[in-house]
Nucleic acid binder design. Structure first.
Lengths: 169, 169
DNA sequence: AATAATAGAGTTACAATATAACATCGCCGC
DNA sequence: GCGGCGATGTTATATTGTAACTCTATTATT
């Protein structure tokens, strides 16, 4: 299994996105293989759409872009693929905008800290485990048992922040 | 302005909820007063419903419980009140369940770390600022500017955790 | 290869959540 | 009183997410 830890600021810096996306796709394939799950055409197609860039897409945006080839447009299909991909740790749900973003951290199933730019929509993902363990610690102090965490911040990515600065200094 | 920092595990421990709720209501009144905002009947009524206990309610659950007195049932009204209350820091939105919970930390406008029990629905709120500043720090390292944070954990409160243990050890 | 078991796809219909747009009301300062 | 403005009331609609059921494809078993 590949175990490449992507630079968190990857989406913000210029890079060869074609290989970035194809690596992630190959990784997805490997992950499914290793867990005896089927990486079907629908699942692949949805992931591919999300891998187009480092932005989050809503389920209905995916629905629109999806090639239905004569079949009837059904949100269910998209949600099923998304649920599967999320359970495999290949995409993350962005709760603050009801959207989904491909995961480029080619590591095992994991939580994520997401930074979402409210202007351009780019999503930066950090693997910062300290936050997650602090959350765990906090929970344990009160007897809480955590099943899943949600860590997001909404704001401006560096370039949109500069642009906003320029307009409203 | 009152500045009482509630014990984060308040919702989990037996307490005089009547006074707990009425304190929060009085606080809300004071907050609005001090910021020259009107604490109208609709806003008060929605907050009162949320103050019934330490659980989150969906907007449509509030809609159902709301006393409309002849007026037509409109989600908009509920959302408007919720938006206002949230902007005043009197309620928090629980993104993981599209719901809203009253805030019992009688302090100035603030973010929150929410622990949500997926069994009984109780919401525990922590004022842990370390998490928030860690998030800020992480953001700054990548040039991100944060406007708002979303910190939630879903799991089991102590008593539901014990119950789950008993069933499935 | 035939067959049973199961996971996924396809389809229709619908539930749940949230907002747009616009008219009207009521409070506050003048 | 009146003008401005924030809040309410109303209708309609947009957006997001599931239920329920059938059918097909893949895999395991014989």
């Amino acid at each position: 299994m590949t175990q490449i830890a992507a630079d968190p600021s990857l989406p913000l810096s210029p890079h060869d996105h074609r290989s970035c996306a194809s690596d992630a796709l190959a990784h997805a394939e490997a992950v499914c293989e290793s867990r005896n799950k089927r990486f079907t055409e629908n699942r692949r197609a949805v992931l591919k759409l999300l891998l187009d860039d480092h932005r989050a897409l809503g389920a209905y945006e995916i629905l629109r872009r999806f090639d239905w080839g004569g079949r009837s447009r059904a949100p269910v299909q998209v949600y099923r693929a998304l649920d599967f991909l999320e359970s495999m740790g290949l995409v993350h749900r962005v709760a603050s905008s009801n959207a989904y973003v491909a995961c480029y951290r080619l590591a095992e199933r994991h939580g994520a800290v997401l930074f979402v730019c409210e202007t351009c929509g780019v999503v930066m993902e950090c693997g910062e485990l300290n936050l997650q363990s602090m959350m765990d610690k906090l929970a344990r102090q009160s007897g809480f048992t955590i099943h899943s965490q949600l860590l997001e911040a909404v704001g401006h990515c560096p370039s949109c922040a500069r642009a906003a600065e320029a307009v409203d200094p």
